[in-house]
Design a protein around this nucleic acid. Structure first.
Lengths: 244, 244, 244, 244
DNA sequence: TATGAATGAGGCTTCATTCAT
DNA sequence: GATGAATGAAGCCTCATTCAT
């Protein structure tokens, strides 16, 4: 009887939904079929921009949880509380929705990052600390970490997304970091201009943190604040010869 | 009736005969992607282990290029020069192939990494240099960089893969790195024990390098050797004013 | 980049566009088996319940003609005049369609049978006669005979179907027949209570009739009315020399 | 985690066999992969006729348990202890094996039935009793009941099988039964010549017994001997008016 | 004669997209 | 605009059959 496909004597009938067995531990999408729709007919009245945002929110969960290919527009529509066809009133197709999602979610972060790094003559250690803090509260502590993973995962397959990121994140932030690093090197906060030449180095631990969090959180969780602090100590602490 | 196979007068259809459309003289499936076509028509002769490896090679390209969901077994089979069904003689299903691929490609690297980090009392800078070198020649310089990206991208959705990696890579390498870092801190090659407490920090730049390579290689290629060197300088170089 | 969907220079293949080969002016799928094509192109308009029934009708033909395994959903969909995917809007999978088919067709018959046998104090001969008549007009004379054969053929492999039948047919009809047989025995219409103890005996000839019809109809057709009459005579007729 | 497809960290590798989840209660084929093969190389030496018989035996289980379409030649070959290709040395294809199976299994029964019914001037009650007995010991009590069900199930789709049966079973046995019934009617053992005109009537209860056994054995088992006895009583017992 | 790895057509099912309402 | 039933291309996987050994 093991493996029996039967479902008792009243098996089928108008089928509605079916969750495919995902190979992984999805963040539990919940079973709400067309949830979030306020009382009868209410969904219809929302402001168009609000609907668009609701769709993007749902898309974040959907794409981040399953990846681009495996995400189901059915799920996204249901989670957004709209009909499937409605998605196409706002986005040309699945790919356009995906790209819009990524664009929409990146800007706010970049603004904050830019604001921090743009202030002149702040000690490097402090800049790094604030960066870490923003990273943890705005990304690792929220669903946006899913998005970052998503970008890492799907970026190489979507040139448009890669380019968008280069222009909107990399090209905006790295120069600022570089300037901070240059000043720090001049002031002796850093042993040399290595960080000024490769400001990407500050992103290494951040990436590692999201990736570790995604893969190993359950096996061996990472103490991210301590990890970040260790990184700062490693590159900025008074070096070997100095007073212990 | 004995012996005759008459089908009666009613068009019953008990059996669908399988018959190849062509007279069996087309050994090449025609859609062979572009790769690895062995000696013409001789597909049946290869050593079984060779076929398995051919499939894994094709799978690397397929999965790395498109991700798990978007990779097509059709393509992989064609690229491996085998029929679709043959895949299933070696792997239970798509997921098993995927996991086997990852396992098969990880071991050799880990061996090399372990060999390097296991040697006692080598200066940290030198260990890092060798690590960088291995990383560049064995991973970034080969298709295995695709695999690393693949693991990063799909790992979170495949607990089995995450766990496998933790056990076979993380749990084997990190302790070795930690020991090296401890010695380096004791010898004054490092300013403090930050790296000993978080040996993961050495992986940050490596991850950044693969990700950058995957996303921005065409827009703004990264000089990886210089990048790695900068990282080493940043954490180990004689600092600003101190005497060594 | 805003707005443009350029794909970069590398032949990445993130999305496969779906595009119909023909300009969407071919409403008829072409392989429509031979049946039930509704008003040209108007498939989308039918009442939902009508579609469901059309599918069930097509399923009857498909399953009855080939058995569960050999029936092709392609054929059933074509015969119902719907796309393959539409089947799954109404039934979870092939098995659910199969079970729904059987359930949907059984109820009306059972109602009629129950109505007949439930009337008290009707002479057995008359009950049997009406049973025979119903059987011939409602089952043997219609496609439902295919269904009965189907149940006989596939029932043993589908516990759910067997159980459904036991509950809905056997458990409902046999007690009624038993009561009729008991009265008949008391009134002397039967030689003993054998039929009361095994009311299944009335089903024997019915089963034989469907099976004979299915296998030997073309070789040696059975005169079912006469056959049924003979059965009635055999068990109820005034015997050889006795006085009534 | 429910529904997780993963199989721990050591998922795949050279796949060998796979049991598909059968919808029904298969008679537990066992898991022997290529069982029954005596010590190394021994299987190769069996007499050809013995191999053929082994294949037919395995085919009985396979076809009877799953039906023609769902039976797997893989299973049959494994159960017979031969390689898949060997099947084709003995039988042209799946259908030929199926038909050979049915033919091979029918003859012995028919011989016994014919022997019984051919004896002249035996009282009908006794003939029926022996028939019942043979039926129970040779068919219902053995795997051959599977075969009878198989014939009922698949016969209508295989004209060759139907015709074979008509010629070898029906056409041989019915005349004998008819003669017995005629004599019984003449001798007053039967109320009339109904059974002589439709000797098929004796088969009704037999068919019902196999079908009931197949479908309802677990829900409500049938006491077949008592059932058969009841049938005999019903048609041959001293009728109503006679001494109670 | 026997083997069993290899084949590839074809089945069931999914899901992005369309379109009549 | 919004809906969601309908579509049908395409994916994964199975398994009867072949054929080199």
């Amino acid at each position: 009887m093991v493996g029996d496909r039967h479902q008792g004597a009243n098996a089928s009938r108008p089928v509605r939904k079916r969750r495919r067995a995902l190979p992984a531990s999805t963040p539990a999408p919940g079973k709400r079929a067309k949830a979030a729709a306020p009382a009868a007919g209410g969904a219809r009245k929302r402001h168009p921009a609000a609907r668009r945002q609701a769709i993007l929110d749902a898309a974040l969960t959907g794409f981040a949880g399953h990846g681009f290919e495996a995400a189901r527009l059915d799920d996204i529509a249901a989670r957004a509380g709209v009909a499937k066809g409605t998605l196409y009133l706002h986005f040309k197709d699945k790919q356009a929705l995906f790209e819009a999602l990524i664009r929409s979610a990146v800007d706010p972060i970049v603004e904050r990052l830019a604001a921090v790094t743009a202030v002149p003559d702040v000690p490097l250690a402090q800049v790094l600390e604030v960066l870490s803090s923003i990273f943890q509260t705005e990304i690792l502590g929220t669903d946006r970490k899913l998005l970052l993973r998503l970008i890492i995962a799907e970026g190489p397959r979507f040139p448009a997304i890669a380019e968008f990121h280069y222009r909107n994140v990399v090209a905006r932030i790295l120069p600022l970091v570089r300037r901070v690093a240059e000043r720090a090197a001049q002031r002796g906060e850093l042993p040399n201009d290595a960080l000024a030449r490769f400001p990407q180095l500050v992103a290494g631990p951040l990436l590692l943190a999201v990736i570790w969090d995604g893969m190993f959180a359950k096996i061996d969780p990472l103490d991210v604040p301590a990890f970040m602090r260790a990184y700062r100590e490693l590159i900025t602490a008074s070096p070997k010869g100095s007073a212990s």
